[in-house]
């Protein structure tokens, strides 16, 4: 268990008194070469929000990288501190679930946009997502992600549909989304469960749905996801746990097999701030 007292980062507010604003959080583990792109886009996103009088910062949490990330991150923090770039360097590797939960506790503002080091945020669109989460009071809003592969011809899209019940069989909503910390705290954040390893974001989404929370699809481009060999969940490991994972999901979320006949509160919620619910 990570001892938070060892972190030199103490929020000056209580969890129930979070200033309205957005913290863009980038967990990093050995992604040195990808960090400049993700951090630059996040800083530009924060700047966009500040232009709309919404406080924003960028929090990078380095999960004890060994590839030189930390040196780069310290330099970037020094350079862009005034633009809102903050760094937490963990003294030991704790894994992405603990990193995200730490961000939920340590971030400066009420809303958190989680992205990964191999993601790029579309800065000009972040304000639309903030308007959407405020207007709908959703626990989470998400938008289209373009997936680009190592070769130019490979391009795809995901994160591109509203919540439907087939998500109980296969996840199609990525972590790269905007969250309301109040509500994520209420459902106790990300859970570390062995059979859901690498699928903790899916577990949280199902948990939010089962708890009656709203997850709203905003039909706007949120970002770009660069597929690298290291981006994928380890397929062997993933397949190994597939049966256990399915059993777990059925046991927790679909005991009576009625999920496909029951519409949760979040079913098919689509919202655009310039249009309304669609």
């Amino acid at each position: 268990m990570l001892n938070k007292n060892r972190l030199n980062h103490t929020p000056n507010h209580t969890l129930r008194n979070m200033p309205t604003g957005v913290s863009i959080v980038i967990p990093n583990w050995n992604h040195e070469y990808l960090l400049p792109r993700s951090i630059q886009s996040a800083l530009m996103g924060a700047k966009q929000l500040q232009q709309h009088d919404i406080p924003a910062d960028v929090l990078v949490i380095d999960d004890h990288s060994r590839d030189g990330s930390l040196t780069l991150l310290r330099q970037l923090e020094a350079l862009y501190f005034d633009d809102g770039l903050r760094l937490i360097a963990l003294p030991e590797n704790v894994g992405v679930v603990a990193v995200r939960n730490l961000a939920l506790e340590c971030a400066s503002y009420r809303y958190i946009l989680f992205m990964d080091a191999d993601n790029e945020l579309i800065p000009e669109n972040i304000y639309m997502f903030v308007r959407a989460i405020q207007d709908t009071e959703a626990a989470m809003v998400y938008g289209n992600l373009i997936r680009r592969g190592p070769v130019a011809a490979y391009v795809d899209m995901f994160n591109n549909e509203s919540f439907q019940n087939h998500i109980f069989q296969r996840n199609y909503i990525d972590t790269f989304s905007l969250y309301d910390r109040h509500q994520i705290f209420d459902v106790r954040g990300y859970q570390s469960i062995p059979m859901m390893q690498s699928h903790e974001d899916w577990e949280l989404i199902l948990h939010l749905a089962a708890s009656g929370r709203k997850m709203v699809f905003v039909p706007v481009l949120m970002g770009i996801y660069y597929d690298l060999p290291s981006s994928f969940v380890n397929p062997t490991r993933s397949a190994e746990f597939e049966f256990e994972r399915k059993s777990y999901i059925d046991r927790v979320f679909n005991q009576l097999g009625i999920r496909f006949h029951q519409e949760p509160n979040t079913y098919h919620l689509r919202y655009h701030p310039d249009v309304g619910y669609i």
């Binding site: 579309i122 899209m157 591109n160 039909p219 706007v220 481009l221």
Partner: peptide, 9 residues
């Protein structure tokens, strides 16, 4: 990049 984009399966 700020258009309305709705592409489903």
């Amino acid at each position: 990049r700020d258009g309305f984009l709705y592409l489903v399966h």
